Amino acid sequence: MDAFQKKTHKVSRGYTYTYYLHPGDSSKPALLFQHGWPDNATMWRDIALPLRSLNHPIIIPDLLGYDGTSKPTDPKEYKWDVMTQDLIDILTHENISKFISIGHDWGSALASRMYNYHPDKVVGLCNLNVAYMPPSGDKFDLDAVNDMMEKHFGAPLLGYWYVFAADDGPQVMSENIERLYHAMHGTAATMETMFTRRNSMREFLTKGRAEDVELRPYAKDEKFKNAFFERMKRDGFEGPQCWYKVSERSLQAESDRNLPNERKKVNVPSLYIGCKDDAVCRPEMMVPAKQAGLLPHLEEAEIIDSAHWCPYEAPEEVVKRMEPWLKKHFS
């Protein structure tokens, strides 16, 4: 991230965020990049670097719980209403009033909520892998959600949540980082087996053999692997797993319940980028919001031949889809 200015800012509720800035042309809306689990701002490097040529201001934060940013361990600190305000505080500090909200994985969910909570500031929405899902005040029931997904998709797509959202999840992951890394970055069949079956992830993390899982080419890079190991051994998983716990305990529903119903409709240009080998975050998940008329300005990019972590595996393909959309709507 040497090409960006590294900065910190203490937001109004007291947490300190680290973020990376490319000033760009202040007359253009900023690009706000939001990473997911269990990544950090660096995930966006090979996407943000080539997009600097468009001369938008760019801001890439380490999100709450990660790397250079504060890491509270109480799930309620990760509610959408307060996390979106954290990012607004940073943008305000940088004199940015309009921005395009871009996210991957949990960062995609946050990118969507940036629009839902602050529609006066978001002029575009780009979701990678995780489809746009409108705010809901409904209580979250993991078993019921997986039963529904098994009925519609043939598999309980949130099967991995039984360890990811569990009280002992951070400890299980910290003690088995090698296995976790292989589960995340293995073949398409590996992801389907580990993530979309009830308790398969816990079984593999506690009893499996990492060497039995073939890594995808990008994940074999020792520098990439060591950076992940060093960061997560230093920081732990208590903060990152709060992103799951806050939903599993219906705290996000509690937050969303206060939003006006009209906030569900995305009245700005939106782009969805999905991946062929992502067994969990399937492009079909966009269908309910489309059918409900909540995405009137949606464009769906050509599917990328990649698994879930496309910003690492195929960043040039992400740029190829994102750049023309940005030029079309925001040049």
Rank of each mutant, 00 (worst) to 15 (best):
1 M>N: 12
2 D>H: 08
4 F>G: 04
5 Q>I: 11
6 K>F: 00
7 K>T: 02
11 V>A: 04
11 V>I: 11
14 G>E: 05
18 T>R: 14
19 Y>K: 07
20 Y>W: 14
26 S>M: 04
27 S>F: 12
27 S>T: 15
31 L>P: 11
32 L>K: 05
33 F>K: 01
34 Q>D: 08
38 P>T: 03
43 M>F: 13
47 I>G: 02
51 L>E: 10
53 S>A: 14
53 S>K: 12
55 N>A: 09
56 H>G: 01
57 P>G: 05
60 I>F: 07
62 D>R: 05
83 M>T: 15
83 M>W: 09
91 L>D: 00
99 F>M: 02
103 G>S: 09
113 R>S: 15
132 Y>D: 00
132 Y>N: 04
144 A>N: 00
162 Y>F: 14
166 A>R: 00
174 S>Y: 14
181 Y>C: 01
183 A>H: 07
184 M>A: 03
189 A>C: 00
190 T>E: 04
197 R>H: 15
198 R>F: 11
200 S>M: 08
212 D>C: 07
217 P>E: 05
217 P>H: 02
224 F>E: 04
225 K>F: 13
228 F>N: 00
235 D>E: 13
243 W>D: 06
245 K>Y: 13
267 N>S: 14
270 S>I: 10
276 K>G: 04
290 K>F: 08
295 L>F: 06
298 L>E: 08
302 E>K: 04
304 I>G: 03
308 H>I: 04
315 P>Q: 01
315 P>N: 08
315 P>Y: 01
317 E>C: 05
323 E>I: 05
324 P>R: 01
324 P>I: 01
328 K>M: 13
329 H>P: 06
331 S>C: 08
